[in-house]
Amino acid sequence: MASILTVNLAQPRRNPDKPELSTGIDKHPTPDPVEVRAPGPRKGGLGSGLVGDLIGNSKFHGGDDQAVYAYAREDLDVWETELQRELANGTFGENFTTTGVDVTGARIGERWHVGSDGLVLEVTSPRTPCRTFAKWLSIRGWMKTFTTAATPGAYLRVIEPGTVRAGDEVVVASRPDHDITVAVVFRAIMGEPELLPRLLSADALPEKIKRLAHKRT
Score class of each variant (00 low, 15 high):
G105A: 08
A106E: 09
Q66H: 09
N95Y: 09
F60L: 15
T104R: 08
G63P: 05
G63W: 00
V103C: 02
R73C: 10
Y71F: 15
F60Q: 12
L87N: 04
T98G: 07
G45Y: 02
G44P: 07
L46V: 02
K43D: 08
A88L: 08
L76E: 04
A106Y: 07
R107W: 09
K43M: 13
A72K: 08
D77I: 04
V51T: 15
L54E: 10
V78T: 09
H61E: 02
I108A: 10
F96S: 01
G56L: 01
V114G: 12
G100E: 00
E94I: 08
T98R: 14
S58W: 00
L50H: 11
T99M: 10
A72E: 03
L83D: 01
N95S: 06
A70P: 05
T81I: 09
L46I: 01
N95Q: 07
G90M: 10
G47A: 02
T91M: 00
L50T: 03
D75G: 03
G90C: 09
D102F: 04
N89I: 00
F60R: 15
G44W: 07
G63T: 12
S58C: 02
T99G: 07
T91L: 00
T81D: 09
V114W: 02
R111S: 01
G44Y: 05
G93K: 09
A88D: 06
V68W: 05
N89G: 03
T104P: 05
